[in-house]
Design a protein around this nucleic acid. Structure first.
Lengths: 216, 216
DNA sequence: CCTACCGATCGGTAGG
DNA sequence: CCTACCGATCGGTAGG
């Protein structure tokens, strides 16, 4: 299915720029004419790569998911399962948001809020990506519990919900008020929540130092 | 400054409908032509009420703030200061979101995500409203602490951040996945968090029953 | 991959 | 408050 390498590279450059724009102005704010002008190509030339605006939006979601995988998920999978990996997953997310890998903050935060009340294929794609992320966090928490690093009665779904809430809210508050303190608030909340649920019975490389520093 | 009562009522009806649309499609997705057609009036007649799209957007933010005040803030202020009022504030918010007072969920969640990376007067208005809400939650928590119902070392800013995170994420998840379980997740998270910070030394009418039922 | 164009809709205005 | 219109931009197409 993949075209020539040259085409793929061009397509990738287009979609990376599309995701940057959409992270600020949404996937509806992303217009084909503006994107073409931005990239210095003709509108119809760019259009030909995708065939419709909806296909461009769907391809942009897939491209952003690839960036997310590289920036957030892979760094955490470098650590062994357990509480350390849970912490790393949250920390990678906060770093990804804070470094403005996408200039408008987390791409998925923006487009989720944009499409959560609009039926269609774009919404379905965004919802599927969000669900996959949520399940990854839940699975990572559940692994830590099975390894005995979280108390037996820890509800993985509940804890994952709370961790994700801290991440997304840090992203939103930091953007709206241009205030990096939101990230510190999220780190404190996550640290305290994991500390409260931890058994302390296992070696926690990577989390120990985080838990020791600045537990409020 | 206020016009005739007849004009005010017409304006209010326009803005209430505008807020409904914006809660689903955003304040940019709100077009003057569509709003006029929706209300069965001419585009230029509606335009004359506001003078520009930006003024319509700003007026819509103000109107939505009025609804928010009635639906979320006032019910909580009916209770005396303390932990009971903190809980009521959160509970009113979840009810406001869950009842779909705005069809696209919380108006401010949608437009905050839409404008958090776009400079301008609309962003400033949305950010000011969000800050006012955040300060109200912080102040309400701080009152409960001063009354001895929360432990001395409770950080009001930190706790307010965490409560707001649970509220907003319940709204987002419930919309994206059409899943009311998100609201139960938020209630559980808030209950546990307040329970952990509470001294248990004071009468907590309204919260006691909430804390007793279903503490996971 | 380009230029040139299509109808529809956008925010906004003229004139009554 | 209406009809009728403005230029700009939208997604999408024709033709090369």
């Amino acid at each position: 299915m993949a075209g020539r390498p040259r085409d793929d590279r061009a397509r990738n450059a287009i979609l990376r720029r599309a995701a940057d724009i959409a992270s600020k102005d949404g996937l509806e704010g992303l217009s084909i004419g503006r994107l073409a002008a931005d990239l210095g190509v003709s509108k119809s030339g760019l259009f030909g790569h995708f065939g419709s605006k909806e296909e461009l939006q769907l391809a942009t979601v897939r491209a952003a998911a690839g960036v997310y995988l590289d920036e957030v998920v892979q760094p955490a999978l470098a650590l062994p399962p357990g509480l350390g990996r849970v912490w790393r997953l949250c920390d990678s997310w906060l770093s990804y948001s804070q470094r403005r890998v996408f200039p408008g903050g987390c791409f998925f935060f923006t487009v989720t809020a944009e499409f959560d009340a609009r039926p269609g294929r774009v919404r379905d794609a965004v919802a599927a990506a969000a669900l996959e992320w949520s399940r990854l966090v839940t699975r990572t928490v559940e692994e830590a519990r099975r390894l005995g690093e979280l108390t037996e009665d820890t509800g993985a779904d509940q804890l994952a919900f709370e961790l994700i809430a801290f991440l997304e809210t840090a992203n939103a508050v930091s953007l709206l008020h241009d205030d990096p303190v939101a990230y510190q608030r999220a780190r404190t909340a996550i640290r305290n929540r994991l500390h409260a649920a931890a058994t302390g019975s296992a070696a926690l490389p990577g989390l120990d130092s985080a838990l020791q520093s600045g537990h409020q």
